[in-house]
Every structure is written in structure tokens, then in C-alpha cells.
Design a binder for these strands. Structure first.
Length: 224
DNA sequence: TAGGCCATCTGGTCCT
DNA sequence: AGGACCAGATGGCCTA
């Protein structure tokens, strides 16, 4: 988290209570960051055959073994399935063997879908600035999403501040000139909250800025 | 041991 | 009809 704050200089990359350091920065790898735990080694299915679901096959669509593995009697959901004694196909009057085959196919698709989702989350993690050390536990899903959101907000504000600085440096131009729509994806009313009040210590210069202490403002930095 | 996180199964719903 | 998406349920693993 320290790394995050150092990048932004502010707390935009901080997570809400509960998703903070305790959520992922233990400094301990949980079964190996990309290790067995993440490799669907067993997952939930009590009788699920771990070996058949290696990471290599998950999102590639190669679920050749799906039709066999995972549907032993004791599988978690399978138990429910047995209990219910019905499913879509059953209602349609399919033979039990066809029902089972259809169910396995649906399960495999869902598994693949979730693996793709996890791959996307991994991709998101890879571009979020946090400690990517093997000694640091992988960000949880919720932490990844919250951190990504804050990171986007931080980048948006930095961009806005940079634009205002450019306008300020170009003294000849009107500081209040709105940015072209093409350069302001958030429109006139930005989604990120910061006001336009002058900084107390720098009223004559910082009215053009956002109201937040700015590392980009020379006057703010000069004044004690 | 409790709580957090996760993978998987499942049935329902919506869309093509 | 088949596929995608979703939410609930279940159970395993890990950490405090």
C-alpha cells in the first residue's frame, strides 16, 4: 500500500476498511500466489478431480475431461442435483444419461466462463500499481476492483490538474475555458469530487487549480 | 476456531 | 434450443 500512496501522493488508492492491508498485504503467500490454490486444485468439489482442471486448459476451451471428471456422486452441486432429481433436461423429458451429459456440458461452460473472468481479473491486477512481489499475497477480487476504481479516479484527477497547469502556464489564455469535450471524457461535471476553491496559502495563483494541495504548483510548494 | 476468500455446481432468466 | 449471465449454496483452504 505504501507503494500505491507513493505513486499518487494521496490516498486515492487506499481501500475502504476491510479491504485494506489486512485484505491482501500480509506478506505471506497463500499457498503460493499463483500456486495450487489458484490453480483450481480441488476447488470446492469434494470429489472433484484436481488434475483434470489444470490452469492450462481452463480458458482455452480444452475441457476434454469435463464430461468425466467432476460428476462423481459426491460432487457438491452434484449432491444437490441428485437431491432435486430434476433439471432443465429432466423437465423436457430427456433420458437420465442425456440429462447428465447436458449438465456436465453446462458445468464445463460455466467453469470456463469463470476462468475467463479470473483471467481478466489477473490482467487487471497486472496493471494496478501495487506490490507485485511473490511475498505479497495476490489481491482479492473485490480489492482488485476497488483499487482499480480508485486508480482510475486518481489518474483522471492527475490529468485534469495537468491540463489546468498547462492553461496556467499559457497565461494568455483564459483559465476558465472549458476543456474540449474530446479531451474530457467525464464531461463538464467530473465524476471525481474536487472543488475549485483557492488554496489558503496561495490565493493569488491557485484559483486556477482544484483546491487540493498540488505538487505541480510551484507557488504551493514554495510557500511554507 | 472463526472469518475471509475462492472454485464449483446448480437452476433460473434472458438473449440469439 | 442452446448459450451467456447471474445469484445462491456448498465446502475447501488459509490466516489471525
Amino acid at each position: 500500500m505504501a507503494e500505491l500512496k507513493s505513486l499518487g501522493g494521496e490516498a486515492y488508492l487506499a481501500l475502504p476498511p476491510g479491504y485494506g492491508p489486512s485484505a491482501f498485504a500480509y506478506g505471506a503467500v497463500r499457498g503460493g500466489a499463483e500456486g495450487p490454490r489458484g490453480a483450481y486444485a480441488g476447488g470446492g468439489g469434494a470429489d472433484f478431480h484436481p488434475g483434470a482442471l489444470g490452469k492450462s486448459a481452463e480458458s482455452s476451451g480444452e475441457q476434454s475431461g469435463d464430461e468425466e471428471d467432476g460428476f462423481e456422486a459426491g460432487v457438491k452441486g452434484g449432491a444437490a442435483f441428485e437431491r432435486e432429481g430434476k433439471l432443465k433436461g429432466g423437465a423436457l423429458g430427456k433420458k437420465p444419461k442425456e440429462q447428465r451429459s447436458l449438465r456436465l456440458s453446462i458445468n464445463a461452460r460455466e467453469r470456463r466462463r469463470m476462468h475467463d473472468l479470473n483471467d481478466a481479473l489477473d490482467g487487471l491486477r497486472s496493471v494496478i500499481p501495487y506490490a507485485h512481489s511473490p511475498s505479497v499475497r495476490k489481491l482479492s477480487k473485490i480489492a482488485t476492483l476497488l483499487l482499480a476504481k480508485n486508480y482510475i479516479l486518481m489518474q483522471a484527477q492527475a490529468l485534469e490538474e495537468m491540463r489546468r497547469l498547462v492553461a496556467y502556464l499559457n497565461q494568455g489564455q483564459t483559465l476558465s475555458t472549458p476543456l474540449p469535450a474530446t479531451l474530457n471524457p467525464f464531461g463538464q461535471s467530473a465524476v471525481y469530487p474536487f472543488g475549485g476553491a483557492a488554496l489558503p496559502g496561495c490565493p493569488e495563483k491557485c484559483t486556477a487549480f482544484t483546491g487540493a494541495a498540488s505538487a505541480l504548483c510551484k507557488h504551493c510548494n514554495d510557500k511554507p
